[in-house]
Amino acid sequence: MTESHVLKAPSVVAKRQRRANLRRNAFYLALIVLGLVAPFIAYPVFLMKILCFALFACAFNLLLGYAGLLSFGHAAFLATGGYTTGYLLASYPGLTPELGIIAGTLMATLLGVLFGVLSIRRQGIYFAMVTLALAQLMFFVFIQSPFTGGEDGLHGVPRGELLGFISLRSNMAMYYFVFAIFLFGYALIQRTVHSPFGQVLKAIRENEPRAISLGYNVDAYKLVAFVISAALAGLAGSTKTVVFQLASLTDAHWHMSGEVILMTLLGGVGTLLGPIMGAGLVVSLQHILSQSPLGNWVSVMLGLIFVVCVLSFRSGIVGELGAIYRKNFK
């Protein structure tokens, strides 16, 4: 009796694993369907804003949640992507939006290499301060450069025609393009996290000296994670510029670096879905507050959420839900 039970065990485990995979795939499928029908239910521009910030937060979370690096300067990548794309699309009318976005992403990637090389030379709290200072440097560069429009920013960036023949002027067409970009970014992060590379990142996060003693070139891993994160943040910024047809200093300000931290923290650091949920909540909150008499209190509210999250809600919404699920259903 016991023998047959033992023999059965591997197949039971495999079955359970298969079922878990099935559940996860069904879950993702439901999310994608939700994303496809969403613009028929809600205002597409609002959804696109959420998707852009969700991608931004996911990119940030790759660094904080999986490599344990707290960057306080991610606004610099968002803004670099946005400004590059905005400037190119506004100055060269023949350029198609996808090329503009690719160029913006490449610029952000390049900046990510520079920032990464400098900032991973310091650890922990110093890393946060270095990234913040570098982003502030970029803020001043953007104010003083002629191509960013200074305090006014870039306006009237044309959305243009995707691949030269699909007009993005309608919000519906734009939405599906943004959704596709978001899925691409999310899939890339998902693959990175679950790859052997992602496992080593987690090992570094948990115990850096041990990872070094095991022979991993820790700095190289951190740098690659930093650059991927910067590139995807740039992708989010470039896309945002095409959607809203403007790029401004708001994206480069340190408040923006703080907001993306809050989105990630609120949704759940180190969870794949958390940053999306956090971005949705923060963007919705800003939207609701800006139309209420409390419009000026947005930053106070964000500050309060920060304090509450840190004091009593550290694993975020998705983290807490996951804990409840594991406690009751497993």
Binding site: L70, I125, A128, G258, I261, L265, N296, W297, V298, S299, V300, L302, G303, L304, I305, F306, V307, C309, V310, L311, R314
Partner: peptide, 15 residues
């Protein structure tokens, strides 16, 4: 977390 908490406080004071 201390950095994040004090950052939240800064936003509250300033705002």
């Amino acid at each position: 977390y201390g950095l994040l908490l004090t950052f939240g406080l800064a936003l509250i004071f300033e705002g």
